[in-house]
Design a protein around this nucleic acid. Structure first.
Lengths: 336, 336
DNA sequence: GTGAAAGCGCTAACAC
DNA sequence: GTGTTAGCGCTTTCAC
């Protein structure tokens, strides 16, 4: 294994100079820096992660808690995770994978052993049992999602309440008077998963404000349930002409089901969704949607963490990304 | 931060005794062990990961390369990943998440910096560019999947060739004479992803052996393509009465499409799949399937790695899990 | 602008 | 069965 003393000898300088040349933490003459860099390259030097963590009290590792629980849509979660990894790498950090099941103990472990410098937590519930721990831990953390009480924490997410509102407003503007929300699986609401609840709030509030008739339907994510849901919606009195879908795997099957029941989208029924843009655009009938900007959220979560690790005093506690609605082929003015 | 000297003082022993009491690497009297454990508990001691890695030359971290490329089905990948994390934790290891894009550089980095003790690589291609590196690296690795040339490597996976064969044999036994394989997305074959190729081999070989007419259809994973695929199959001359699906997201939509075209499953058409059991069982018509035992593969990959880290000399180079076919409602004897 | 040297907290010889 | 001690490879004072 190549170590810093090897590089120092080769470059004809002291180990500390090598360290400083690499970290840039003190001025180094151009010539010395050049020689150090050459030696590093020639020997293929890589600082030992453990030694660096021990001496520098920074592991350059972020811990990421990924939810793999019932009802969450894995492909969306992985978009968040992938963008976190990419952003972390851009800051010379690696990412440690923790699962939900590890719970608070996992967070405490990686913090106490100094395995990770900071934590990113996904799938936040309105009253999340991990909040007290996150507040008391000596390591900075960022939540992707907003609990009910977020003081003392740093949170970022799409403004899901506003997302629900924007969808309803769009449908209302098109003349629709009866709207329905096809939501996430029931277990997600039972757990009080924050983002799902917020969509319902925004959806309902906007409908009330606009004087629309509205209903909410939590739905299992199996494609087979699409037809049942569609039939249930159409049986309502009055029947909705505008639908908001907040359930990725059900989106395409649901549109198929409507057409199978003889309804044209958007001729008879307008559909909007809250999901990543790529999903909405890939459906057979491209769907008007509010984007869940997973890549942006992941990247910005990392930026927030880096700012906190850098000792920035002005890190915003709450970052709510405003919804952005893209019109596609699935919505149209109400006919008749 | 609580350190080992704090524990030692509290327990009235030396630091090394604490270390040994915790690692079990040398005999400790019952009384001493008890005192050490009490001190650890009372102080909430956790060994510093970096210090431990530096002194012990073991980081207790495994690196896992997760594929997030086009055409792979993310929920299946996450089953592997989740089982790796769980198994790793059972061996007191954590898991570092690497993405495909990091490629060889990422593997080299975590190995050279001693961030990880060992590597698990998924999404193996027949001629994988990472193989030379994995062979030369000083850290043990396990591949989930088999490249064409696997000497000098440790690999584990379902025997996908046999899985393809078992599906065909099952259909042949039921009297079907014309069979079709609905495969993974084209890009997966273009990349020469090993498991997809092997299913085709097994499928074709078994069909030839049994004197069946067979055809292979790579298919995009969008549910919208199901109807097109179904129509294409039925237009063939002669039309297949047995179908093998090796494409998770298409399974349910495809069955819907068949019925939409007036074909009963299994009355007119028998369908088998190669996918995790949970997926096959959850379809509206539960599908006869060969299980992709993701949890078992992930767990055993970790066991293999632990054996190699432990210096075991008899670690098997190749572990091919035999296919296990479960009959469900989607297959029946050929009628007419 | 550079070097010398003191740790960081732990493990593992080497003692006894 | 237990203690003493020498590092592991790096960062960071402190000194010049």
């Amino acid at each position: 294994m190549v170590k810093i003393t090897d590089v120092a000898r080769r470059a004809g300088v002291s180990p500390s100079t090598v360290s400083y040349a690499l970290s840039g933490k003190r001025p180094i003459s151009a010539e010395t820096r050049r020689r150090v860099q050459a030696a590093v390259r020639e020997l293929g030097y890589r600082p030992h992660a453990g030694a660096r963590a021990l001496a520098g009290s920074r592991s350059n590792v972020l811990a990421l808690v990924v939810p793999l629980r019932a009802g969450i849509h894995v492909p969306v979660v992985m978009r968040f995770a992938a963008s976190v990894v990419t952003a972390a790498r851009a800051h010379d950090h690696d990412v440690l994978l923790l699962t939900q099941e590890e719970g608070e103990e996992g967070l405490r472990r990686v913090a106490d052993t100094a395995l990770a410098d900071a934590l990113i937590v996904m799938d936040v519930q309105l009253r999340d049992p991990r909040l007290p721990l996150l507040r008391e831990l000596d390591r900075p953390s960022v939540l992707i999602g907003f609990p009910r009480e977020s003081t003392g924490l740093t949170c970022i997410d799409l403004d899901f309440k506003a997302a629900g509102e924007v969808c309803v407003d769009h449908l209302a503007r098109l003349g629709h008077r009866v709207v329905a929300l096809v939501g996430s699986p029931p277990e997600v609401y039972v757990r009080q998963t924050a983002f799902a609840q917020r969509v319902v709030q925004g959806f309902t509030a906007a409908a009330d404000r606009a004087g629309l008739v509205s209903s909410v339907h939590p739905c299992a994510a199996a494609p087979g349930s699409a037809l049942a849901v569609a039939e249930r919606l159409l049986r309502e009195q009055p029947a909705p002409t505008g639908v908001v879908v907040h359930n990725e795997p059900l989106l395409e099957p649901l549109i198929d089901a409507f057409e199978q029941l003889g309804l044209r989208v958007p001729g008879d029924l307008s559909v909007t969704a809250i999901c990543p843009d790529e999903f909405a655009a890939a459906v057979r009938v491209p769907v008007t949607s509010v984007a869940v900007p997973a890549a942006e959220v992941g990247a910005r979560a990392v930026e927030l963490l880096m700012a906190k690790l850098g000792g920035a005093a002005d890190v915003p506690q709450a970052t709510l990304l405003p919804p952005r609605l893209t019109e596609r082929a699935s919505t149209a003015p109400r006919t008749a």
